[in-house]
């Protein structure tokens, strides 16, 4: 069964992203939204962890939350895909369940 994991916390505030990536099954999807979008940026202290995880899971980031925070798509780690709210809904449909890492 495939899972969509949602992460809405900055990885510099809480370990939600790190824990999510540790416990996400192979082939699962991870969506970064709200303050979670900061985990998608290049050159941060968690970027290597995120890049490594891209070999195991697909990572998406919510565009409207990126824009609100002034994070340009050119700042994102390669391989992370930007989705809008419709894309968020589609991800919940494509996967069998949603696990929110609050």
């Amino acid at each position: 069964m495939s899972t969509l994991h949602t992460v809405n916390k900055s990885p510099f505030d809480r370990p939600s992203l790190q824990t999510c990536l540790r416990l996400a099954g192979k082939g699962n999807a991870v969506l970064l939204f709200e303050d979670g979008v900061y985990g998608a940026m290049q050159g941060t202290a968690v970027a290597d962890t995120v890049k490594e995880a891209l070999g195991n899971v697909s990572i998406y980031v919510l565009g409207p939350d990126l824009k609100a925070r002034g994070v340009g798509e050119d700042k994102l780690i390669d391989g992370i895909k930007v989705v809008d709210y419709k894309g968020f809904v589609d991800l919940t449909v494509e996967n069998d369940k949603v696990n929110a890492w609050l």
Binding site: M1, T3, K97
Partner: peptide
Amino acid sequence: LEQQDVVLS
């Protein structure tokens, strides 16, 4: 976690 149907957080 993979085996679950509904996850409440």
